[in-house]
Structure formats: C-alpha cells, structure tokens
Nucleic acid binder design. Structure first.
Lengths: 205, 205
DNA sequence: CTTAAAATTGACGCCTTGTCTTCAAAGACT
DNA sequence: AGTCTTTGAAGACAAGGCGTCAATTTTAAG
C-alpha cells in the first residue's frame, strides 16, 4: 500500500517540475511566471506554494536534480584515477559528454535571452564543487598531484569546463572528445608550471 | 552653452544608473523592481521608460560601462605584449587588479542571492571577448602563439579569469599578484601541451 | 511674445504575487 | 460501517508592479 496521499504529493511535485522545465525552455527563465508554470499543469495556483516558495526555488530544484545526475559520475571518475592525467581527463570527458547528451536539460541551464548564466549556488552544485576540492586535496596528500593551490585549481577547472562546454555546443558536429582533449592538455601542461603552495592553516601547524 | 535639454538628459540617465547600482547592490538584482529604481531618484515612474525599456536594460548598461572601463586596459596590455608570457601575464594582472580595485562595481556583477552569475551577453562584453579572440588569432598568425584552437583558448582564459577572480576576492588579504601568477603559470605550462589546430575554414582554403 | 517640439508626470488598466479561508478527500480510531 | 481529524487542493482576494498615455510643463525656435 503506497498511501494515496504520498502518491499524489509526488505526482504533483513532478507535474510542477516537468511543467517548469517545459515553460522555462519555451519562455526563458526571466519571462516565465509562477502562473505560467501551474497553467501548464492541472493544478490550482495556490497549490504551487505548497510545493515551492517561488519560481526561483523550482529552478533550483531542477538544477539540483541535474547536479545529482552528473555528480556521482564525476566522483567515480576521480576516485578511480591513479594519476593526474586520469583525474583530469576523466573529469572533462564525463562532463562534456553529459552536457552534450542531456541537451534538453542543459537548455534550461544555458544562457537565456533575459537571464544570466548558470545558477551556481544551489546546495547540490555547491556540494559538487566542495567534493571536487576535497578530492583535489586528497590527491595532493597522496602525492598524486603536486602541492598546488587546490582552491584556485578547482576554480580553474570549473571555469574552463563551463566555458569550453558552452562553446563546444555551438559547433557542428559536437565533438566532446576534442573539447576534453583540449582542456586536459591545458591542465596537464599547466600543472608542471604551477607554483607550489601550502595552505595557510597547514603552514601554521 | 551646453543646451539645457541635452544636459538634463544626461543627468537623468546618470541618476537612473546611479540609483540602479545602489539598489541592485542593496536588494539584489532579482528582487529590485523598476519602481525601486525610480523611487531612488527624483523622477516619475513614466520617465524611466524614456531611458530604458526594463530593469534588465539598465543592468546591461551598467555592465557595458564596466566593460568599457577594463577593455582598453586589457587591449593595451595585449598589444604591447612581445611574447606569450607577456600577453597572458599582463592580461591576468590587469583584470585581477581591476576587480580588486573596483569592488563597488564588482559587487553588482557578482553573484547575487537570487540571481545567477555574471551577465555575459551585453554588446560591450561580447565585443570584449571578440577582441580577445582576434588578438589571439593575430598572435597565432605572427607566430607569437602556437597554432592552437583560439576559440577554446579564449573560453579557457575567460573561465579561469572569472572563477579565480571570484575566489580571490574571498581571501584576506586580497593578493592579485598571486592570483595572476597562478593563472599565468597554468596557461604558460599548458600551451606547450595544447594540440595544434587549424580552423575548419582555413583548412578548407 | 508666440508657437512648436520635446520630455516629464502620475493616474490607469492589466497582470502577477503570495496569502487565506473554505471544503472535499484520506486516513485514524472505535 | 460510522465518526472524527488531518491534510492539502482550490480559487478568491488585496497588494503592488508593469508599461502606457493623455495632460502638462519645459525648452527651443521663429
């Protein structure tokens, strides 16, 4: 017995999310209203607010779901890595393949005519960044990576991934391998030149 | 004689922009309304629309002004460069110093609680990116740079600049030189490893 | 001084927002 | 099965934003 109450709750939430995805792509994030979203469902306007506080929160929920889909893959890739190259190369390949495959989802993420860029501050996405930073620190401790500034390195990886990812999608045909190779080569060469670094807290210890 | 009409026109426009900067920082981009902006001036609501179509357009105008402030400096740095290192290093130093200095302006640019990230698609900013791409292509032609994928390289530079820039601002004290050195080293090392590349159009010729 | 053009004003109609009361359906208890 | 309680969907409502426009003031020109 599932409990009818629980079931409709899930159904309604999904209906709203699905409608939101649809409408965000069609109208763009900025132009869509909460009413646009519920109008695309069978529900009443007041019901929306039982599930989300605003259209922003729906957007976050969608982003979180996206992040949850890629994060485990990225994580697995990094844990499996036995050296720097596998770490970097695996991450880029996975990420680029994801955004190339999941185009429909990425359409929501991507630049909209009247909104900014990627929403990067949802809990899940932040958690993903943190995970990356910790994995980098671990790799440095284990001597897989040279002791560079993990925070800046993370920032660089993220920046390159998103920017190249976006350019990659504008090319025809979409070549995720070429994009990943470019990014990987950049970092593989760059590592050797990076200034070595000891975090302030560790230096004090 | 300046012409009184022209003068008040400029004054009004500036008043709106100044009020907008103030309000965007205070309330965040998403939460501010056109009314909030004009309320922070002496003007009437209708007047706003003689100058801008929406709050979005005001935001763009602010971004454009910002871009116009940095672009010439970046350009000069690149034109002066006699080799790869000067090109890269000069650009990063200039950019990081700019965002560190002009904090108030950057506060508008930076992540807001309820909006996304940087608006990257205003005409001036796009022009700035284009300028960078062209400078890169020129440098490649002149043999200063190896023949790499200029588009991806530009994307990487931009991604790294913005992401590291943001992290840099969270550290105390703010060390623009260290940030620039990190980014420069990454690319200096990375270059040598990048796959050589001939753009499709040129390859066809 | 008169007339024409330009630009500002603020009220207006339309729309969205988030809230709140009402009420039907689901589940609990006997 | 019958009654009571709780949940949550519904949809009306007040508050307030949006963009427009006729009226009015301000500047420039003749």
């Amino acid at each position: 017995m599932t409990g009818k109450r629980e079931q409709t709750k899930k159904d309604n939430r999904n209906a709203i999310l699905e409608a939101a995805r649809e409408v965000f792509v069609k109208l763009g994030y900025g132009a869509t209203t909460v009413r646009d979203i519920i109008r695309a469902t069978e529900l009443a306007s007041g019901t929306f607010y039982n599930y989300f506080k605003s259209k922003d929160e729906v957007f976050q929920a969608i982003q979180d779901e996206n992040a949850l889909r890629v994060r485990p893959r990225l994580r697995a890739e990094r844990v499996r890595a036995r050296n720097v190259e596998e770490f970097i190369s695996g991450s880029f390949h996975t990420f680029f393949e994801y955004i190339a495959t999941d185009r429909r989802t990425f359409a929501v993420i991507r630049r909209n005519a009247d909104t900014m860029r990627v929403r990067m501050d949802t809990p899940e996405i932040i958690a993903g960044f943190d995970e990356l930073r910790i994995d980098l620190l671990t790799a440095i401790e284990q001597g897989i990576f040279p002791p560079v500034d993990a925070d800046y390195l993370m920032a660089s990886l993220v920046g390159v991934a998103f920017e190249i990812g976006e350019h990659m999608l504008t090319r025809e045909p979409i070549d995720t391998k070429a994009a990943a190779n470019f990014a990987t080569a950049l970092f593989m060469g760059g590592f050797k030149a990076l200034p070595h670094y000891v975090a302030a807290t560790e230096a004090a210890a």
